[in-house]
Design a binder for these strands. Structure first.
Lengths: 152, 152
DNA sequence: ATTTATTAAATTGCATGCAATTTAATTGCT
DNA sequence: AGCAATTAAATTGCATGCAATTTAATAAAT
């Protein structure tokens, strides 16, 4: 790329913009489903982690563990989790062994939401054909590699 | 996907999360460059459009045109552009022909920033090998197809 | 010509993201 | 034990995103 070549600065050539635009477009596509659930997109991601954690680990995750999973810090997660708690989906408890830690437990209502997601998710995927789904799978793997490359 | 199959709800299987995480990771990667320029990421995208517009169209874009390019509305762009104007990079002017429209013009300082970007961008890309760049190109094209599919 | 409908920005309100600081609890060190 | 360093959340401040409403100007319709 020469110093006078501005092709590298064209918006359409910018991977960064495509990622940014695609991410927001996908969030928009999830909006009807999330509205039905009464969740925002990051709230949904947090619930996904909690549902998954419940099935895989005996202990509930801490805010820190959730943050590592989502790559979000306490500045974002503390208020988000307080809202989920207000909604009655999650309980936040200080650990007895270490009062610094906040452990996150699903309430019955929080667990119940999981069952609502599956049919809505299936409906969301209906608008895509097999070709699209295959393409998305390839995209997901490419993103995995990019993420691995960027987390050095 | 059966009603009891939760694999489709695992975070790592969610394309939406990968996109969200990758987009934020790329923005993080741009942070050192953008700090040097004194711009936030969406401000940088707006400047990219203005630089590009200048080379391609005789007329300056309106806020609406910028918004269509970036898929952002006036709620986001009005304050963002006021900040760019405060920094002396952009001028906002009501159109004489239609007082509803705000036209966006680059100042000399705004044009000057473009020259600073190219070397910084080259430096940013240095950390990637040819293999990575090829992969990114494929990723960009995949994202194009996804975006086209979602903008129906 | 007047009224109605449409359009472009601006504004308001709320929920992120994220850097930077603060607070409180725990660990390590001597 | 006593003190410094570390750690986990919470807090603060600022800049988005985006839905919903408002304002002002133009276009359309009668």
């Amino acid at each position: 790329m020469s110093a006078f070549d501005t092709a590298g600065l064209q918006l359409d050539n910018q991977l960064c913009f495509k990622l940014y635009a695609a991410s927001r477009a996908v969030i928009r596509a999830y909006k009807p489903m999330l509205d039905a659930l009464g969740l925002t997109y990051p709230q949904y991601l947090a619930m996904l982690v909690l549902w998954e954690w419940q099935e895989r680990a005996p202990e509930q995750p801490t805010l820190k563990a959730l943050g590592q999973r989502l790559q979000l810090d306490s500045g974002t997660l503390t208020p988000l989790l307080k809202r989920l708690e207000q909604m009655g989906l999650v309980q936040r408890r200080r650990a007895q062994t270490d009062e610094r830690e906040v452990h996150l437990a699903l309430s019955d209502a929080g667990r119940a939401v999981q069952a609502q997601v599956l049919p809505l998710k299936a409906q969301l995927l209906c608008q895509f054909g097999d070709q699209d789904l295959l393409e998305m799978e390839g995209l997901r793997r490419s993103l995995d590699r990019l993420l691995a490359r960027l987390s050095d």
